[in-house]
Design a protein around this nucleic acid. Structure first.
Lengths: 118, 118
DNA sequence: GTAACCGGTTACCTTTTGTTAACCGATGAT
DNA sequence: ATCATCGGTTAACAAAAGGTAACCGGTTAC
C-alpha cells in the first residue's frame, strides 16, 4: 500500500545524503573549482587560467581534482585545436546543480567573517 | 565617496569565502554532526547518543570535532548532574546558521543518488 | 567483587592530501 | 639555437586527517 508520494527523508537518510555529497564534492578544492567554472561559464577556462585564479592550487592537485570532477560528469575537458594546443574545462549542465551548495557556503563564509570581525 | 550599499562579492572574494567556510566546516564529520544536532535540537544529545547516530564516527574523532565546533561557537557542551555524569551537546543559535549549507548538501546528495540510479 | 556504561584520552598506525621540483613533448617568439 | 609557454606527469616527501585499540576514573547493577 505504499504511496507514490515522495517521502521526506529520515534523519539517517539525510546524513547518508550529506556523506554522499561530501564523497564527491568534499576536500579543499572541488567546490572552489566548481564555483570558479560557474562564475566563468562563458569563458575559455584553460588549465593555466584556472590554476592562476583558484589561488594556491598546484598543477598536480588541479589535474587530479579536474579528473575526479570529469569522472562524476560535473566537468568536461576539451582539447582545442589552437596552436599551441590549449585545453578548455567547462562545467556541465549537471555540474550547475552544485551551484546552491557553493552559494550557501559563500554566504556562510561572508557572514562568518563579519561575525568574527566584531 | 564609498557608498554604504553592500557590494556584491567579487569572484575572488567568493572563493575566499568558500575557503573560510571549509576551514571551519570541512572534513568528513562536522556537517554531519551539525545536521544531526539540528535535527534533534529538542533532545538531550549525549556523547554516546551522537556516536551511535552519526554512523561510523569513532570516539576520538567525535571528541575532536565537537571541540572544534565548540571553539567556533557552533555547539555548546554541558555537563549534566545526572548519575552517572552525562554530557549534553547542543547546537547554538549561531550554529543554526549552518542549516542552509547542510540542506543544500542533503538535496544534492539525494538528487545525485537518483541520477546515478538510472 | 565484577562487569558494564559514560565520556572521554592516548599512542600507534594507515590513508589521504598536499607540496616541491624535475621533467616531457609540442609550439612560438627572438 | 635558445628560451618561454601550454598542459600536464612523475617521484619523493611532508603534513593532515582519520582509524584502531587500549586504557582511564567514576558509577551503577548484579
Amino acid at each position: 500500500m505504499k504511496d507514490i508520494i515522495k517521502q521526506e527523508p529520515t534523519c539517517e537518510q539525510e546524513l547518508i545524503a550529506i556523506k554522499d555529497s561530501l564523497e564527491i564534492l568534499g576536500g579543499k578544492w572541488k567546490l572552489r573549482i566548481m564555483r570558479h567554472l560557474n562564475n566563468h561559464v562563458a569563458e575559455n577556462n584553460t588549465f593555466k587560467k584556472i590554476q592562476r585564479e583558484v589561488e594556491g592550487i598546484s598543477a598536480k592537485m588541479l589535474s587530479k581534482e579536474l579528473q575526479d570532477l570529469e569522472t562524476n560528469l560535473l566537468v568536461t575537458r576539451t582539447v582545442m585545436n589552437t596552436r599551441p594546443v590549449t585545453v578548455s574545462y567547462a562545467i556541465t549542465e549537471y555540474g550547475t546543480s552544485v551551484f546552491p551548495v557553493t552559494e550557501t557556503l559563500v554566504q556562510w563564509g561572508l557572514n562568518h567573517r563579519e561575525k568574527i570581525k566584531v
